[in-house]
Design a protein around this nucleic acid. Sequence first.
DNA 1: CATCAGGCGAGAC
DNA 2: GTCTCGCCTGAT
Length: 313
Amino acid sequence: MGPERRAKEKEMVRVRAEYFSIRQICESGQCFRLERLEKQASEGEDSPETNRERAGSAGLDADGEESYALCALGRYLEIRQNGDEIFFDCTRQEFEKVWKNYFDLDEDYGKIIASIDRQDAWLTRAAAHGSGIRILRQDLWEMIVSFLISQQNNIRRIRRCIDLLCKTFGEEKRTKQGRRYYDFPGAQALAAASPEELRACNLGYRSRYIHETAGCIARGEADLAQIRALPHEQARQELMKLCGVGVKVAECVCLFGLHHTQAFPVDVHMDRVLAGRYPQGFPFEQYQKNAGIMQQYLFYYDLKKGGEKESGI
DNA sequence: CATCAGGCGAGAC
DNA sequence: GTCTCGCCTGAT
């Protein structure tokens, strides 16, 4: 059975990457179908709680290896990270074709962080704190629905709603190991769903937005392929024609679904950060195409620091 | 029980 | 154009 074992080993891609933290990516609120896997209890390891505490308090990755599972692009992927070593549980071919791009691994985030104005102590700290964040290249339709759901909602419930939506309307699939997972439902599937069925996913008043928007796409009244080809301002304008999509949701969709890295979503948190830290206004002109990445550092920093005391500077 | 969570649409002015 | 208000739901 030696050869078979070796073949299995080969179906694992190991890469080294700086400025990459799967945990930070998972917790940065851009992706709702990436989740941490609990450690196998077989090896007398620390309890999950100990792990969580350790991981949560460290600025960089904790020593322990962490595993995550992701459903995206109609696929299922498990990822492990230990320091700057990242293991993708897929073939080299799949990694090169799909995940390298999805995780934005060709972008030099060190260079982006180095471009930050050192006079801006807050942003410098925020970027140091979230230096492993990357802006994923996620599916446009999935981002539209996800951020429709995100409005006036909290991350935990957003995840649950999306999970339910996928289990109810998404195609059921199995990994080679037999693990069951669900695709994100397409516009056709959601357009065909009755309002009652959508309500059952705990979407609340957002179910109407999803029903109408899905219908709009399914009937061809809005064309996602066309929106993909538009520059930022126009793409945002077109997205805002969709029911339930306002400025904030449109900017999130542009940033995470179209990789318009200049998009700068302002929610209640960012509003607070901008008012408190940038009373003269955020220096958009300085960061231009990377403003959205700066936004993500600031958002994540605020998310993590939220609840802690307002220690000056 | 009130408030809040990664807002938005509708209506008033 | 700007302002206000109501809205599903679950956690605190």
